[in-house]
Write a protein that binds this DNA or RNA. Structure first.
Length: 847
RNA sequence: GCCGCGGUGGUGGAACGGUAGACACGGCGGACUCAAAAUCCGCUGCCGGAAACGGUGUGAGGGUUCGAAUCCCUCCCGCGGUACCA
């Protein structure tokens, strides 16, 4: 008995060295043979044998801040398992890595400590690199990128210019979200419940000139193309809600006194006859003009001033009673001809629709509440078809077919749906309205008044105006500065020698744009750069993208369901429209992993003190055990609480498998081991050997189906566990059957515990697991010659008897009726019916 | 409010409409040991029973079915998203 204890550290170091030395996971591009030849690949690294399907597997790139945490490990353990499986099922797998290395936390850290963000970020990147290697993640390191490096952001700037050129990047003054703590503007997507997503401060609205990307141009396609991708339904739903498409009509309401038309957007043109007043947002530019000269002028002015100073949070409070002020003017309801009063009220939002609404209090809850508060008329124009009364204390909002229009002139008696169509058509004919679609989605605000980000490649010239930096002058390099403290403008503005530049057009004195880009810009295209990461002549070669895009499997946290995933989709569509790319969607399949919670079931956080740092665990139990445990915690898309004990269970499984491999290698005749050239299962196993061979095939089938299906890796690991347990239970099975079963277990655990899998596979076969094709289950071994027939009486199990597989129904029925447990429960009752499920059960129905 | 996802032993979780609780953790018992750890073996939903076995059981209540954790209806609870979006 030699040393047979499972020493994870030794085994892991051994295989990590092999993979690093042989660059096992590097995959050259095929489209441009020369692009990869700068670094010669040893023969073992070649994957260019017979034509293989490509598979592009990407995990969301990490934001490098401090040390990696256990959630990163989960993310990459899932992706790595998938990458390994795809490699072994005949795919050329691209599995790269990079860092989303610009961003606020590094800059805030710099403000606190004075350490340059680049220094802190690069330290963190080094920690991530060490971690990825010690975890044994199969990464193609030849394609590594970091978004803060000029070699990368040069092309981020290039993409900005392409968008600018096509009018998709533009500068505009508007009311924007301003975080007073971080001293920068934020995208709509970064404001959560009226607060800054990062620091939690209440966000203010400020009127500022900022850079936007015209993502709203793509609203329809971003919505429609969700149907073409294999994403979790809840993520698609979140995106649909965020885009928020509403179908309705635009209708003109004319103010006769001033001779101005005011269009409104409504999703209920069918209720137009019930519009009894008209409301404008306090920010509407015409509000003060309308009120001017009326007796309400002063009240309106006060109301508007008050509304503008309120925070988004206060204004959004639903419980607050509705307020507003009469403008002293009227507009004409275009269908009734009535003059209806104009009001200003803060429940109307300037950002949505036209900033003005027609109010139909009878059929809209908000209008109802407002009408009640100010005693405005409420006219019912939709009623139940059967004439039943509607409650008088709330709005009747139905548009179902059991309701009909009333008090609506020629349109009486129509269903709301039909009324919608007819009224819109009539408005169109009369030239006072038309069908219209509105989106909730706003353009993406991309400029930030912060230092640690990608400079916007624009120059302001007193003579030429706004001038894009010529492409050949890229990158606009982010200069080093000393003072990071934001002062309401970018800290870059203080870097005078950088800011002052020559106008690319006239050569005169000009100033650089000092805002930087939102870091979500950097991460909206990195998966494109991976494909052609070392290209220094272009962001990518379109031919290379044709080889790899789209991403076949994307893996990441659901917290990016809207922001990153929407922005990346927009980028791909915009770039495709420019002819730079052939696909419409970046990520064909998405998997969202759940969070690992602390042992207390709460989200891990330093303040709670429930953080599980991965490194000590890996030193103690090995990366394989931690990876296996994390994937065994439950369905990987669900949140799960950490449990140290369960981790030792995963370690025990690997240890037991290792012992089997070590004993096999020690006990077997060396010539036999050497002769095990083929991995074929024993030809005609018998007894326990047959049981083991069957179990191994069953496990192959189960593990494979989890990879093909829902990534239920906990079930896959359970199947391997059962196989290992059987190997312990059946020590006397013949040697070749055991060898086959042990090799199979090692082969199947390899995607989850690659070092241990490789080690045991080598012990059992002398070969390398990752160079072997994924095992295929032998159909003949998936069925036994007999099975346990479940015998039920009235649906309750009363006995179990052995029956031959494939036996005819009559025989199964006969066996069941003869089973003692069944006879005991028949008890002289009449057999009404016998249900037979072949190879499974018989149910005897008695009365 | 609206949209989405869930609710199964002490715990994490299994289960094409066909044996509910695989596998793991925890617990109990045993082997090995001077002893402990490690390792190995066995038992473990609940109630009754020494056992065989019987009853009961998947948030609640109905329904469909020979048979329901699974399908349908009503409701309760939890989680996530979103919300004066006209």
């Amino acid at each position: 008995m030699s040393e047979r204890r499972y020493q994870a550290r030794e085994i892991e170091a051994k295989w990590q060295a092999v993979w690093a030395q042989e660059r096992t996971w590097e995959v050259p591009n095929r489209a441009v043979p020369d692009s990869a030849s700068a670094r010669p690949h040893p023969p073992a690294a070649r994957h260019d044998g017979p034509r293989r399907d490509k598979s592009y597997v990407v995990e969301m790139l990490p934001y490098p801040s401090g040390e990696p945490h256990i959630g990163h490990l989960k993310n990459y353990a899932i992706g790595d398992a998938i990458a390994h499986f795809r490699r072994r099922t005949g795919h050329r797998v691209l599995h790269p890595m990079g860092y989303d290395s610009f961003g606020l936390p590094a800059e805030n850290n710099a403000i606190k400590t004075g350490v340059h963000p680049r220094v802190a970020t690069e330290q963190s990147i080094a920690a991530f690199q060490r971690a990825f290697r010690s975890w044994g993640i199969s990464i193609d390191w030849s394609r590594e990128i970091a978004s803060h490096e000029p070699e990368y952001y040069r092309w981020t700037q290039w993409i900005f210019l392409q968008l600018y050129r096509r009018g998709l990047a533009y500068r505009k003054e508007s009311a924007v979200n301003w975080c007073p703590n971080d001293q920068t503007v934020l995208a709509n997507e970064q404001v959560v419940d009226g607060r800054c997503e990062r620091c939690g401060h209440v966000v203010e609205l400020r009127q500022l000139e900022q850079w936007f990307f015209r993502i709203t141009d793509y609203a329809d396609r971003l919505l429609d193309d969700l149907d073409t991708i294999d994403w979790p339904e809840h993520v698609k739903t979140m995106q649909r809600n965020w885009i928020g498409r509403s179908v309705g009509a635009e209708v003109n309401f004319r103010c006769q006194e001033l001779g101005i038309d005011y269009p409104v957007f409504t999703t209920r043109p069918d209720t137009l006859f019930g519009a009894t007043f008209f409301v404008m947002a306090p920010e509407h530019p015409d509000v003060l003009r309308l009120a001017a000269g009326t007796e309400n002028e002063r009240a309106v002015r006060d109301y508007v001033n008050h509304a503008l100073t309120e925070s988004a949070e206060e204004r959004g409070d639903l419980d607050k009673t509705k307020t507003g002020v009469f403008l002293g003017r009227t507009v004409t309801n275009p269908v009734t001809g009535e003059e209806i009063p104009m009001w200003v009220a803060d429940y109307v939002l300037m950002e949505y629709g036209t900033g003005a609404i027609m109010a139909v209090p009878a059929h809209d809850e908000r209008d109802f509440a407002f009408a009640r508060a100010y005693d405005l008329p409420i006219r019912q124009v939709v009623a139940p078809r059967d004439g039943s009364p509607v409650p008088s204390d709330e709005a009747y909002v139905t548009k179902a077919d059991d309701a009909i229009l009333v008090n609506s002139g020629d349109f009486n008696g129509l269903t709301p749906k039909a009324g919608f169509e007819r009224i819109v058509h009539w408005l169109d004919m009369e030239g006072i309205g038309h069908p219209s679609v509105n989106f909730r989605l706003r353009d993406w605000l991309v400029s930030r008044q912060r230092y640690w980000g990608c400079p916007i490649p624009i120059v302001y010239c007193p003579a030429c105006g706004m001038v894009p930096v010529p492409e050949e002058q890229l990158p606009v390099v982010l200069p080093d500065i000393q003072e990071y403290q934001p002062k309401g403008r970018s800290p870059l503005a203080a870097a005078e020698e950088w800011v002052n530049t020559a106008c690319p057009e006239c050569g005169g004195a000009a100033r650089r744009e000092t805002d930087t880009m939102d870091t979500f810009v950097d991460s909206s295209w990195y998966f494109l750069r991976y494909c052609d990461a070392r290209n220094d002549a272009a962001a990518w070669d379109p031919a290379v993208l044709r080889e790899w895009m789209s991403v076949d499997q994307y893996i990441g946290g659901v917290e990016h369901a809207i922001l990153h995933l929407l922005y990346a989709r927009f980028f791909v569509k915009a770039l495709a429209d420019m002819g730079l790319l052939d696909v419409q969607e970046p990520f064909n399949a998405l998997f969202t992993q759940g969070m690992i919670l602390g042992p207390d079931g709460q989200k891990m956080s330093k303040s709670r003190g429930n953080v599980i740092p991965p490194t000590p665990l890996i030193e103690r139990f090995g990366a394989d055990a931690v990876r296996t445990y994390i994937l065994n915690m439950g369905p990987p898309d669900q949140d799960a609480a950490w449990n140290d004990n369960a981790l030792t269970g995963a370690h025990r499984l690997l240890s037991r498998l290792y012992t089997l491999g070590a004993e096999l290698a020690a006990d077997s005749d060396p010539s036999l081991a050497a002769a095990a050239e083929t991995l074929a299962q024993p030809v005609e196993p018998t007894g326990d050997g047959l049981t083991l061979v069957r179990k191994a095939n069953w496990a192959i089938d189960r593990v494979t189906s989890e990879f093909v299906g829902r990534f239920g890796f906990h079930n896959a690991i359970a199947a391997v566990t059962e196989l290992v347990n059987d190997l312990y239970r059946l020590p006397r099975a013949d040697a070749e059957a055991r060898r086959f079963a042990i090799a199979t277990a090692a082969s199947l655990i390899f995607p989850f515990a690659p070092h241990l899998g490789a080690e045991v596979f080598e012990l059992a076969t002398g070969r390398r697991a990752w160079e072997e094709p994924w095992p295929a289950a032998d159909p003949a071994m998936l069925v036994a010659e007999s099975f346990e027939l479940v015998c039920q009486v009235n649906g309750r199990v009363r006995d179990r008897v052995q029956a031959p597989s494939g036996a005819p129904r009559e025989e199964l029925e006969r066996l069941a009726l003869a089973a003692p447990g069944v006879i005991a429960h028949l008890d002289g009752q009449e057999v009404v019916k016998v249900v037979v499920v072949p190879d499974k059960l018989v149910n005897v129905v008695v009365r």
